[in-house]
Design a protein around this nucleic acid. Structure first.
Lengths: 150, 150
DNA sequence: TATTGTTATACTCTATAACTATA
DNA sequence: TATAGTTATAGAGTATAACAATA
């Protein structure tokens, strides 16, 4: 318990919204600050992970939609990943307007690298949580993703 | 279920860290995009809510620490809130170097305003979740705040 | 000297609008 | 014309470094 928890009622949907908004904002700031200089930005990491998970090349447009950014932002993210050799771009075989973004060997290695991930601040913090707490976070992450897409 | 969930193993701490990082990042972006122009920024809202919850004036330094931003950032946030009449600044009675930031009547009204909060995008989305899902989010918010502070 | 907060400045990430290429 | 992506530009939001005031 952090606070006397006085004024705003947190039992309502609006109260939960306020609390969740703050928690998400603060954790996002903390993650940004904690990220080592050498690592990817939040958006870059998310795109790389999505490509690895999806298992197939995706168009920049589909990535922008999935990550909840506008197309120009995805252009920059993909360009940054490409410059680091983590993804490659190919022409779409059927539609010349589109491109396909594919994760490279090196990108896959980075995503799967235990080293890269074990050294992350968040992973360390998670090891200190109970299995129940981790399960709550796992389920919450799934719900938050659904909220983001809706 | 969103994906075939292939490549990165999400059962490990590192896997959970990756999934949580993405979920937090995406929801933070979505919240930023969805926020109506008239409303406060994420940081401003969070500070105002914190002051209301705390129930007592806080120094800018304490707020910066709590919100996980650096002091200069808090200077800007407090200045913005003050310009809108939502907080006021007072000299610290004992230490002339410090200040005290206090929420105003109008600030309290804004935080507690059902109207302000019911019209928010996130609140609407939350009403569509089951009680169990909302409970997961409520508990996750508490855990995420603890992570942010650690 | 050490600490609190501010000012000056720059960087990162994002967005909107205008443009190019293809359908 | 409509669509996919890029370029140009601007606006948040944040940080570090240097400074002023007080302890």
């Amino acid at each position: 318990m952090n606070h006397p928890d006085t004024s705003p009622q947190t039992g309502t949907d609006a109260g939960l919204a306020a609390v969740l908004r703050m928690a998400v904002g603060r954790l996002a700031r903390r993650l940004r600050a904690q990220r080592p200089d050498s690592s990817l930005s939040l958006g870059q990491g998310s795109v790389l992970f999505t490509l690895a998970r999806h298992g197939q090349p995706m168009t920049p447009g589909a990535l922008a939609d999935h990550e909840k950014v506008q197309p120009p932002s995805m252009t920059r993210i993909v360009a940054a990943l490409e410059a680091r050799g983590l993804v490659r771009r190919m022409r779409h075989p059927e539609d010349g307007r589109q491109q396909l973004v594919e994760i490279t060997e090196e990108g896959t290695r980075l995503v799967n690298s235990d080293h890269q991930r074990r050294e992350a601040w968040l992973t360390q913090r998670l090891t200190e949580l109970s299995p129940e707490e981790k399960d709550v976070l796992r389920r919450a992450a799934e719900i938050m993703d659904r909220l983001s897409q809706s």
